[in-house]
Computed example of a mutant assay.
Amino acid sequence: MGDKGVSMISRYLPKLKQEIKPQVTIVNGENATSFGRGISRSIYKQLMSDGVDVVTLGNHAWSNNEILDFIDDTNRLIRPYNFPQNVTPGKGYTLINVNGKQLAVLNFQGRVFMDNLDDPFSLADALVDQLQATTNCIFMDFHAEATSEKLAIARYLDGRVSAVVGTHTHVQTNDARILPKRTAFLTDAGMTGPADGMLGMKPDNVIGRFLNQRPARFQVLETGRGILSGCVVDIDDKTGHATAIKTILYTDDQVMG
């Protein structure tokens, strides 16, 4: 989220990679510009140079028009798969090679309280069937507003994908778990950006809108502490089943497990 989020990745991701030693690092970058919507070519390249393997997007995928100039040139930047297939640039999944094994990374967007895109359940159903001919290690970033929709798609795909991790609400949830058929699930991974804002925005404008019910222009908070939120998922590369999921949360002034 904003410049603070990009700088938090630059500052903490190398330390995290030394400590945790992840084989694949996935970052949702749909709010990465300085104004908090969309992503630019330079920010995408910065995230890649900092050690990110895949960047996923969401409902703000197209908020910075520059993305149209480069999204088709890379297979490491993916947008929600359930945007209209025949007219949307980019793609909704990618395959990453990890020590001779492939990890499929999927990006889907929910529809409850959001834009009415194509049905994520039926499209995920078909895509997962297709990908299972190649790999049983499948990770999904499900970008959605409603908790119920996030859990519903995770339970629907339980045992067929390795993990479903939610994004979009900017608040990390405390429900990381392994579902009955061994799919890892977290309702929301949380936000990387300004720790003292409101979902990354300056508080005064947000509070003012609640008080007076008038439209307000939200601005990304640029000062104060930063926060980095996410999770770590362990996957059995033979079965594709998750064996563990744990949240991580870093701030500039403290580290929390």
Rank of each mutant, 00 (worst) to 15 (best):
T147D: 08
V128I: 14
S122P: 02
L131V: 10
L199P: 11
Q130C: 05
F218N: 11
V220G: 03
T183L: 06
M114S: 11
C137E: 03
D188L: 07
F185D: 06
A189Y: 02
L106F: 11
M140C: 05
Q109N: 05
M114V: 10
Y156L: 05
P215N: 10
N116H: 12
Q219Y: 06
M198S: 13
N212V: 04
V171D: 07
L186K: 00
T223K: 09
D129K: 15
R209F: 13
C137G: 00
V112W: 11
M191H: 01
I178R: 02
V128R: 09
S148I: 03
A184G: 04
R225P: 02
G159P: 03
D119N: 15
G110I: 13
S148T: 14
P194N: 12
R182Y: 05
A126Q: 13
D119Y: 08
G208T: 12
L221F: 00
L186C: 09
A189F: 00
P180I: 09
T167L: 07
V112Y: 13
H168R: 07
D115L: 14
D129L: 10
P180H: 12
I153M: 07
L117M: 11
Y156E: 00
I138C: 00
R225C: 01
T134S: 14
D188F: 09
F139T: 02
Q132P: 01
N116G: 06
L123P: 04
G190K: 11
V206Y: 03
A189T: 03
G208M: 07
I178H: 07
T187L: 00
L179I: 09
T147V: 10
G110V: 08
Q130T: 13
R217K: 15
A126W: 01
L186S: 05
H168Q: 02
A144V: 01
Q172D: 12
D129H: 12
G166N: 08
G200D: 04
M140T: 02
N116L: 12
N174T: 15
A154F: 04
M191P: 02
R155P: 00
T223R: 11
A189Q: 01
F218M: 15
L221V: 08
T167K: 04
A195K: 14
A126L: 12
D204Y: 14
V112R: 11
N205A: 15
T223F: 06
D141E: 07
D204S: 13
A184E: 03
V171Q: 11
G110T: 11
M140L: 12
K202D: 15
Y156V: 02
K202F: 09
D175E: 10
V112H: 06
G190S: 06
V105I: 04
Q132Y: 03
R111G: 03
A189V: 14
A152Y: 05
M140P: 06
I207E: 09
R225E: 10
S122T: 15
L211P: 01
G193C: 06
R111K: 12
